[in-house]
């Protein structure tokens, strides 16, 4: 029974809460605070969501913002990862440490600090989220780049390739699977973006996660919040299931 603890963990921390979430989303509107109350199964919350006039806008912004955040994050993270990768071995962990440093600080403290520096509104939301996502993407990309044999760069140079040609003909194609994997993970995180839109956005920059938070903690509509959370999960599942995983490089 070697797999038993894994199943236990999965049930306790993942499947269990998920079942609870689904259950709460099927209480009658206005009922339920996470405890079991018999006899109140309904899909009314989902019907309400489908009829909601504001939700398509929120959904659209969530998707559009997530794509924008992901794109910007990769545009910043990939060159940064290449820079770290090409540093002398001794300087590499230092540079990586500096990039990850903001993550060691409380995220709210970081974001309230950022509020002093960057404007509110769409631009602020994007900058804040990119700021939060870049370190993860860089760590993932550097780990991938490390797997590319340095002898390949030497071999390419010896065959007459200039630094640019080495990049386009060797580094770029070999790092593409890693870039895909990092993009996929970043997209998943960006779809669940909460703090950036919450602290930097106004009514127009409401993401699904912000709406879940608002319904649950401001209006105390737990069943509606739960139904929205299920919808968010479904949205996040799309890139996880559809985007092919980065293939193993040799």
């Amino acid at each position: 029974m070697r797999t038993f603890p894994a199943w236990l963990m999965l049930t306790l921390f993942s499947l269990g809460p998920l079942a609870l979430l689904l259950r709460i989303s099927m209480y009658k509107p206005g009922q339920g605070r996470g405890f079991y109350m018999p006899g109140t199964w309904t899909v009314q919350n989902y019907i309400d969501l489908a009829r909601d006039a504001v939700l398509p806008g929120i959904l659209g912004f969530t998707l559009g913002a997530a794509l924008g955040m992901t794109l910007l994050t990769m545009v910043v993270a990939y060159p940064l990862a290449l820079w770290v990768h090409n540093l002398p071995t001794r300087q590499r962990p230092v540079a990586l440490g500096l990039i990850v440093l903001p993550k060691l600080c409380n995220v709210l403290a970081v974001l309230f600090g950022l509020r002093l520096l960057i404007p509110r509104g769409l631009l602020g939301v994007l900058i804040a989220e990119v700021y939060l996502l870049v370190p993860y993407a860089v760590v993932l990309l550097v780990a991938w780049l490390k797997r590319i044999d340095l002898a390949l760069h030497e071999a390419a140079r010896g065959l007459g390739a200039s630094p640019w040609q080495i990049f386009w003909r060797v580094t770029w194609p070999l790092s593409r699977p890693g870039l895909m994997a990092a993009t996929q993970l970043t997209l998943v995180w960006a779809l669940a973006a909460l703090l950036g839109p919450l602290l930097f956005g106004d009514a127009e920059q409401t993401t699904l996660a912000v709406e879940v938070q608002r319904q649950a903690t401001e209006y105390h509509r737990w069943p509606r919040a739960a139904a929205l959370a299920v919808l968010l999960l479904a949205v996040i599942a799309v890139p996880i299931l559809l985007v092919p995983r980065g293939r193993e490089a040799t």
Binding site: D149, L152, E154, A155, V170, A249
Partner: peptide, 9 residues
């Protein structure tokens, strides 16, 4: 090269 360093892609 000792490990040949062929371009894997």
């Amino acid at each position: 090269y000792q490990n040949y360093a062929l371009f894997p892609h």
